[in-house]
């Protein structure tokens, strides 16, 4: 697909997301609704990832750049907030460590439980089969 058409599709999805947010009133940001719309188009095979790859690769590989101007807006935040930066930095680091630990621990616990149950199910299936053979 031509790049102009690829870009038109992506922008149309963005606008559709905005419409669903502002006019239909879905309580999610328009961008996120747009992302879900594109995901649905991909999952239903209406759109193939290759058909929009030039535009999606461009944005995905330069993603951080587009957030530079919004991040510079930190200049306009009042000193009362900025003076708390050591506390905010500490909280960001601490919360990340806790999230890492809890996310990993829960996943591992549930995986082990599933593996244990599957092993038990296999074993009981085996013994009942042996019992039937006897």
């Amino acid at each position: 697909m031509r790049i102009s058409l690829q870009f038109a599709i992506i922008v149309a999805i963005c606008i559709a997301g905005e419409i669903l947010h502002r006019i239909v009133g879905i309580p999610l940001p328009g961008n996120i609704i747009g992302m879900v719309l594109l995901l649905l188009l991909l999952c239903s095979k209406i759109l193939k990832p290759e058909q929009i790859s030039a535009v999606s690769n461009f944005f995905l590989s330069h993603l951080a750049f587009f957030f530079l101007p919004p991040s510079v807006a930190i200049m306009t935040v009042g000193d009362d907030v900025l003076s708390k930066w050591p506390l905010l930095l500490f909280l960001c680091i601490a919360f990340t460590l806790v999230t890492l630990a809890v996310g990993g621990f829960c996943t591992q616990f549930l995986i082990r439980r599933q593996e244990y149950r599957e092993a038990m199910a296999r074993r009981s299936a085996k013994t009942s089969k042996q019992g039937a053979e006897r």
């Binding site: 719309l37 594109l38 535009v55 944005f59 957030f67 101007p69 919004p70």
Partner: peptide, 22 residues
């Protein structure tokens, strides 16, 4: 000028569906 770049935030978010789909 920065706002011209920020306009592209919306398409940059939408294309996140591609890696998620993969």
């Amino acid at each position: 000028g920065g706002s011209y770049i920020s306009v592209m935030l919306s398409p940059a978010t939408v294309v996140l569906a591609v890696p998620l789909y993969r």
